[in-house]
Nucleic acid binder design. Structure first.
Lengths: 192, 192
DNA sequence: GATCGAAACGGAGAGGCCTCCGTTTAGGTA
DNA sequence: TACCTAAACGGAGGCCTCTCCGTTTCGATC
């Protein structure tokens, strides 16, 4: 139906634009100047518009990429850590990561409400990856078996939503630890 | 809670801006250049922005004014015409009027979906005015008593929606006449 | 009718959006 | 390796948005 491989330079520029845009959207909100993004990525505005005809398309690309990153991190952690440590670490990253994206919150809702095909493909990926992490830990017996992954993810989101004030970084970290300890409590077998 | 009377020049400018904007939105859609509107109204863009801080506010003002005009026309016609003639004339005006506003259709939906207080106040006014016109004609015995005003209004809207093609003006006029004749058919007493 | 403060004006200016098209370059082919 | 063409680039340019602030005008008061 589509997709012919991009020329190397085009692919390079596209990637840089997404990376720069991610930073810009996170820090200045999704109204960040597209011209500034192009400039910082070292390309002309024409190039930006060729790759991303509208702001929405760019936002969507950024979002897709971040979701993929989160999922990949889950797989990576699962491969290289004990199940419960992988879980704990991913939860910390998730909250920290979300907290840097404050600028995108509103538009994500918009994107959700639009008929974008993006969400059909990626919307469930994070919950799924998270559930998988939890299941591994459950099977290893290091967290209690009666916890619902959707609930926990929701709790993590709440922490992120509430993360303001001067020391939200430490507070968030402690709250996530607290949740993790709650999950460990009553497990059949203590890790380590 | 608010509303202190505007200075005479301010009021003048405000009115002109709304009038010019109505024309511009109708002909070029609601994305019409605000700068051009200000220019055509003979004021600086600063003045436009002072009165209407966002495009939405201006659209809303235009819309409110048009609804008021439609309602006022209904009252005026009722005062100066036989009931069934007032009704017929208003229906013609309604369709003709709507047909000139093609550019606003989409944004009106947007406005509807927003939490604008505008619609609490004006949304029902047109149907109400129309029902009142129909009731007078019913009581005068010049239209059949079993017609539902909401149905008829809906029919008028359909005519407007379908109004394209080269001779939509004549066609619309004939269709409205047809509906009016349908209303007259079976009335207890013939007008004139 | 002269005075005066508040209200309103207006347009320059800074910056953004997006398109268009002449120029450059990647990468396949001989 | 030299060539060639489709793909990609980039930035000037036209139009827009919105703010800021020095200037003008209204209309209340005397």
């Amino acid at each position: 139906m589509e997709a012919k491989p991009l020329r190397a330079d085009a692919r390079r520029n596209r990637d840089r634009l997404i990376a720069v845009a991610a930073k810009a959207f996170a820090s200045s909100g999704v109204d960040a100047s597209l011209e500034a993004i192009a400039r910082e990525a070292g390309v002309g505005s024409g190039t930006l518009y060729r790759h991303f005809p509208t702001r929405e398309v760019l936002i969507e690309a950024v979002y897709r990429r971040e979701v993929e990153g989160l999922v990949a991190a889950a797989e990576e952690l699962a491969r290289t850590n004990e199940p419960d440590e992988a879980l704990a670490e991913w939860m910390q990253r998730f909250v920290g990561y979300m907290a840097t994206k404050r600028g995108m919150r509103d538009s994500l809702r918009l994107l959700l409400e639009s008929n974008s095909p993006l969400f059909a493909q990626t919307s469930g990926a994070v919950p799924l990856a998270f559930r998988s992490l939890m299941e591994r830990a459950t099977q290893a017996g290091t967290i209690r078996p009666d916890a619902n992954s959707a609930d926990v993810l929701h709790a993590l989101s709440s922490i992120y939503s509430a993360s303001d004030g001067p020391d939200w970084q430490d507070r968030s970290r402690r709250l996530v630890s607290l949740i993790m300890d709650g999950l460990r409590y009553g497990a059949s077998q203590q890790s380590k």
